[in-house]
């Protein structure tokens, strides 16, 4: 009996081999890690801090937050921000609708389909956004150049409609294309962690049709990948300048550069900092919304 107790004690004291190894590892590279952390911290923090100091530095008073208070009086902030957010939400929705079925199909289909989809989704990466814009511009111009007043064809009308400045569908289309490479890779990585075929078959065996099986079984398990896709797409849309600027729309990024009080250096920089914080906050909200995995799952009965 005593021997058994001793053995049990030893077993509970001795960490498993994996833990021992990591304990050994923990000691040495602590300094190296700290150095890396400091270097990266400085790399990110210095420009932001410098920008912040620039915005609050007042030649007369020494310190002033007036650059920040002025932002809200500059015309066009809210419409620009709203447009960006609407475009972001729409882009995320379209990317989901396009890619989720595609990635599932790739998992279930053969390797040839996989190569094809991967190729298509990677293509936007090698097309610079300026080239994409040039292409879009020439198509749109073709519509307006050939227009006879009073005799608009269906396609011409369509080309006009998608440029509606209150919600430019053409920007949405461009953003979806631009988001494809990152979104595909993220979703595909998430899908790779699942045995999609078996899970779908198990769901079907339990009476769920194919679509229902994807919605009830695959999507909840892709939560992380779906969130990451949303992050990347949101960041991309909020920061996108080239396409929207050349096409003449004013979402948030364009407004930061062109729309606000030009020439007032500190205000421009203040807007940049605000946009940075805003994007960051949105990402935090998204991740907080998706972080309640443990709490959400048991409720799902």
């Amino acid at each position: 009996m005593a021997g058994m107790t001793a053995a049990t004690l030893t077993a509970s004291i001795d960490p498993p081999p994996g833990e021992q190894a990591s304990a050994r590892r923990r000691g040495r590279p602590r300094f190296g890690r700290a150095a890396v952390l400091v270097i990266f911290g400085l790399y990110f923090a210095v420009p932001i801090l410098a920008s912040f100091l620039f915005t609050v530095d007042d030649p007369v008073k020494g310190f002033s937050l007036s650059a920040y208070s002025q932002i809200f009086s500059v015309a066009g902030l809210w419409p620009a921000l709203r447009l960006s957010l609407e475009l972001a939400v729409a882009t995320i929705a379209v990317v989901y609708l396009l890619l989720i079925p595609a990635v599932v199909a790739v998992r279930l289909g053969g390797p040839r389909l996989r190569t094809f989809v991967e190729l298509v989704c990677t293509l936007p990466l090698v097309v610079p956004s300026i080239a994409l814009t040039a292409g879009i511009t020439s198509v749109l111009r073709w519509g307006s150049d050939n227009m006879v007043p009073g005799q608009t064809t269906f396609i011409q009308q369509l080309l006009i409609d998608i440029q509606n400045p209150s919600f430019p569908v053409i920007l949405l289309l461009a953003y979806v294309v631009m988001a494809l490479p990152l979104a595909y890779r993220t979703l595909d990585a998430g899908m790779r962690a699942l045995d999609v075929r078996t899970l779908l078959e198990a769901a079907q065996n339990n009476g769920a049709g194919r679509t229902r099986a994807i919605v009830t079984v695959i999507l909840p398990n892709l939560r992380g990948a779906l969130l990451n896709t949303a992050f990347l797409t949101l960041a991309l849309v909020l920061g996108e300048f080239t396409v929207s600027s050349i096409l003449g729309f004013v979402p948030f990024a364009v407004w930061i550069v062109n729309g606000n009080a030009a020439g007032q250096g500190p205000v421009t920089v203040a807007v940049s900092i605000v946009s940075l914080v805003l994007t960051w906050l949105l990402l935090l909200v998204l991740s907080a919304g998706g972080g309640r995995r443990g709490a959400a799952a048991p409720a799902n009965q």
Partner: peptide, 22 residues
């Protein structure tokens, strides 16, 4: 008859429990 309307329960070779459900 499609799979989801059949009257057969199946146990798979690989672990097939839905990871998000208890």
């Amino acid at each position: 008859i499609p799979a989801h309307r059949r009257d057969a329960g199946m146990v798979f070779q690989s672990y097939s429990l839905f990871p998000h459900l208890n």
